[in-house]
């Protein structure tokens, strides 16, 4: 089976690195971006199968990135999983309204749970 490509947009390097290594070991192809601008750029150039997106990011926040990716014909179909530590009703609603597939709170999810979610979403496609 062809390797699925994931894009991680996360400015915390420790989190980005742990997630990247774990997903690589799980057999995914992984690319990373450190801020919102780079995230949008890589969403177009790398054509990922799924995007993991932080909300609090330098140079364009996650909502902005989400909006731009969903508004563009080329990338609108790519499922986006928001990874964040926010978690109030307003944040969840805003993210889902903008077209995010789902929403995970980083400190509450183990890496294998995140991976499980990703697999479920990719299989559904």
């Amino acid at each position: 089976m062809e390797k699925k490509k994931l894009l991680i947009v996360e400015d915390d390097l420790v989190l980005q690195n742990s997630l990247e290594e774990f997903l690589l070991a799980e057999g995914f192809d992984v690319v990373c971006a450190i801020d919102g601008e780079e995230g949008i750029q890589k969403a177009f150039s790398e054509k990922p199968d799924l995007i993991l997106l932080d909300i609090v990011l330098p140079r364009k926040d996650g909502y902005e990135v989400l909006r731009e990716i969903k508004e563009n014909q080329e990338t609108t179909h790519v499922p986006i999983v928001l990874l964040t530590n926010l978690g109030s009703i307003a944040d969840v609603e805003k993210a889902l309204e903008l077209g995010a597939t789902t929403y995970l709170v980083k400190a509450d999810y183990r890496l294998d749970e995140v991976t499980q979610k990703i697999k479920v979403i990719l299989n559904r496609k």
């Binding site: 742990s18 183990r110 890496l111």
Partner: peptide
Amino acid sequence: AEMNWQIE
């Protein structure tokens, strides 16, 4: 989250 993910 950093600690938990690195240990895992």
